[in-house]
């Protein structure tokens, strides 16, 4: 595969995006969408040959659908002239992204994204939009303010974005080819490691164990009690009569448990920090929102302008 191809695809997508962003005419926007999607599709096709996938055809289809939805929504969001629509399209992007996350088996994240973003953050945005936007009549284009209708220098913006995309392409294309997804064994090991740290979970993970089975109490003991059997992982417990008892695992810890455990066990300090950040943000928001600003500060602006003019003078003393 010639290495230039992904860059051409990127460039095509960028041109498409540019057309969509900069043009007000429907035809160009359509052409732009077509070119951009084609470029993206090409890029994805090129990328599909890099290494193994994670799922079957269905997964691939889901992925493609969600990807298309995310990208088109994102483009609509960026190119739309009405901020409210942009916000709504962003909700759609989040939904699509969450779909992809589900495909990636990151259920907890997927749902928290929906809850936090679509549920909370976007609502805030909507509130602010409504606060700031004089509930204009959105039916008439002319009512929409100029700054929403015309983008600011789309060419340079898209070029920068294309440069950014090229960096990603440069990084992705050679580096990924050697990578294969985690195998079932890796996955099992990972879950076993997690289970080993959760000995109390064992009783509820095994169906049909005798009442008097004593499970290991510590991680140390638990490590030795997990065996990889013929058809999966096997727990070894000890009955009250002193016999060992092997039980297959029915219920492995799920994604939520996994994330939760990792959060508190591996990143406690970061967790606390995140809490502090949120708290500070809350304080900040309160402080900022309470501030009373004079509506008309033309005088202030003028005075600021004056002082700046003072610095601009070109006296010989000022420098070389």
């Amino acid at each position: 595969m010639p290495t230039i191809l992904p860059y051409i695809a990127t460039a095509a997508s960028a041109i498409g995006l540019l057309l969509v962003l900069a043009s007000t005419q429907r035809v160009f926007r359509l052409i732009g969408s077509a070119v951009g999607l084609a470029g993206l599709a090409w890029l994805l096709w090129l990328a599909s040959s890099l290494g193994d996938g994670i799922g079957d055809v269905a997964t691939e289809v889901f992925f493609l659908v969600f990807a298309a939805l995310a990208v088109t929504s994102a483009v609509r969001m960026v190119s739309g002239v009405k901020p409210v629509y942009s916000a709504l399209f962003f909700v759609l992007v989040i939904m699509a992204v969450c779909g992809m996350l589900v495909v990636l088996e990151a259920f907890f994240i997927a749902f928290s994204l929906v809850i936090v973003y679509a549920g909370a953050i976007l609502i805030t945005y909507m509130f602010v939009l409504m606060l700031a936007q004089q509930a204009s009549d959105t039916e008439h284009e002319s009512e929409i303010p100029q700054y929403d209708r015309a983008p600011r220098d789309p060419v340079s913006g898209v070029i920068v974005a294309a440069i950014f995309m090229s960096i990603i392409v440069t990084a992705v294309f050679p580096a990924i080819s050697q990578m294969t997804p985690a195998s079932a064994a890796d996955r099992a090991q990972s879950q076993a490691d997690l289970l080993a740290r959760l000995p109390r979970q064992w009783a509820s993970s095994v169906d049909g164990a005798p009442e008097d089975v004593v499970w290991p109490k510590t991680t140390q003991e638990a490590m030795g009690a997990i065996k990889v059997g013929v058809d999966g992982l096997v727990f070894q417990g000890v009955t009250s009569s002193g016999q060992t008892f092997n039980a297959p695992i029915d219920r492995l810890p799920g994604n939520t448990q996994h994330v939760g455990w990792s959060l508190v066990a591996s990143f406690p300090a970061s967790l606390e920090l995140a809490g502090v950040i949120l708290l500070m943000a809350m304080f900040g928001a309160v402080v900022l929102a309470r501030r009373q600003v004079e509506h008309a500060d033309e005088a202030l602006a003028a005075s600021v302008g004056d002082t700046h003019a003072g610095f601009e003078d070109d006296s010989p003393e000022a420098g070389l």
């Binding site: 070029i159 950014f164 960096i167 440069t170």
Partner: peptide, 11 residues
């Protein structure tokens, strides 16, 4: 853009 160009060239 500046950072991007530098990083891109580096990459």
């Amino acid at each position: 853009g500046g950072v991007g160009i530098i990083v891109l060239l580096l990459a």
